[in-house]
Structures are given as structure tokens and as C-alpha cells.
Simulated scan of single mutants.
Amino acid sequence: MSIKFKVITRKNPRDLAAPEKYYPSSVTGSILDLNELADLVGDGSTVRRNDVYAVLIGLVDVAKKQLELGNMVRLGDLGSFSINVSAIGKDTAEEVTGAAIEKGKIIFRPSSNLKQMLKALKYEKVGESTI
């Protein structure tokens, strides 16, 4: 199996007068939702699809709650999720309050197994489309 990519053109945002360059851009295949994921996991085990779906929904709920509490959620060979913040810098530590935080974001850190999978991927060029 291979990851498909297409060729796109992009301008240099630091030098808009520079000629465009060509870059590979991955092409997303199918999107699996929780129902399809539950079906696939259920097909590969002795657990029924409905049970798998209930566990996945429970996992999402618990992970969300743990992230809200400031905890990291580590999902074994998948990786871990945690909250990170973007903020406005202040001149002194005393000036730093919650109001300085502009937004929070969820960070995903893949496991070493997923990182190894990325290193082993093969790529296949499709169509000559550009943006």
C-alpha cells in the first residue's frame, strides 16, 4: 500500500515576487467515522459492533473530561493527547494571568510505533493537479 500525493504550486510567503515552486501534497482517502471504526474493530474481534461503538463513545467522553482537567491522555500504541496554550507575552511574571491566553489547542503526539510506520510508508504520485 502507498500514500497518494498530488503536485501543487505555492508562492513563497516571504517573497511573493519569487517564482512559484512545486510541492507534493498528500491526498486523503476515505474518512472513517466512529460507526465505521466500530464495524472494523468488531469484525476483527469477538466483540459486537454495538459494544465497540459504546466503548469508543465512552473513550471520547472520558478523554475530553481528562483534557479539561489538564491531564494528558495516553492511548498506548496510538499516542497521547494534551492541551497546549497560545498566549501574549508579558514583561513581568506578575502580569501573566489567564487573560493572556489567546487560545487553547489539543496536541497529538504519535507513539513510537506510529512514527516507525511513517518512516516505512511508500508514496505514489497521482494526477498533475495544482492549486
Rank of each mutant, 00 (worst) to 15 (best):
A63T: 09
V41H: 05
N12A: 12
G58F: 02
D39I: 03
K6A: 01
L37Y: 07
N12P: 10
T92G: 08
R74M: 06
S129Y: 02
V7T: 09
L118P: 00
G76S: 07
K6W: 00
V73E: 12
L67A: 06
V41L: 14
S30V: 12
E94Y: 08
V47P: 02
E128T: 14
T28A: 13
Y22E: 10
E20W: 01
M117C: 09
K21F: 08
I57V: 13
E95S: 02
E68V: 09
L34G: 00
V60F: 07
K4H: 13
M117R: 15
E124K: 11
S25V: 05
N35G: 01
N35T: 09
I83C: 11
P13G: 08
K115M: 09
S2Q: 14
G70D: 10
L32I: 13
A120L: 14
K65Y: 06
L37P: 00
M1C: 11
I131L: 06
R74G: 07
F108V: 05
T9L: 13
Y53H: 12
S111H: 01
L37V: 15
Y23A: 04
P13H: 05
F81Q: 03
R74T: 14
V47D: 05
K6T: 11
P13N: 07
N113P: 02
A63H: 10
A100R: 09
L32W: 14
M72P: 03
Y123I: 05
A93Q: 06
P110G: 01
L67N: 13
V126A: 11
D77T: 03
M117N: 11
R10I: 00
I31S: 05
E68F: 04
F81N: 10
N50R: 10
F108I: 01
V55D: 04
I106E: 00
A87C: 09
S86D: 12
K4T: 14
P13M: 03
E36C: 00
I101Y: 00
I83P: 11
R10G: 02
K115S: 11
P19T: 03
D61H: 12
G58C: 04
Y53A: 13
V60A: 04
S86T: 03
D51P: 00
L32S: 06
I88K: 14
E128I: 06
L69M: 06
T97L: 08
Q66Y: 00
F81G: 13
K122Y: 01
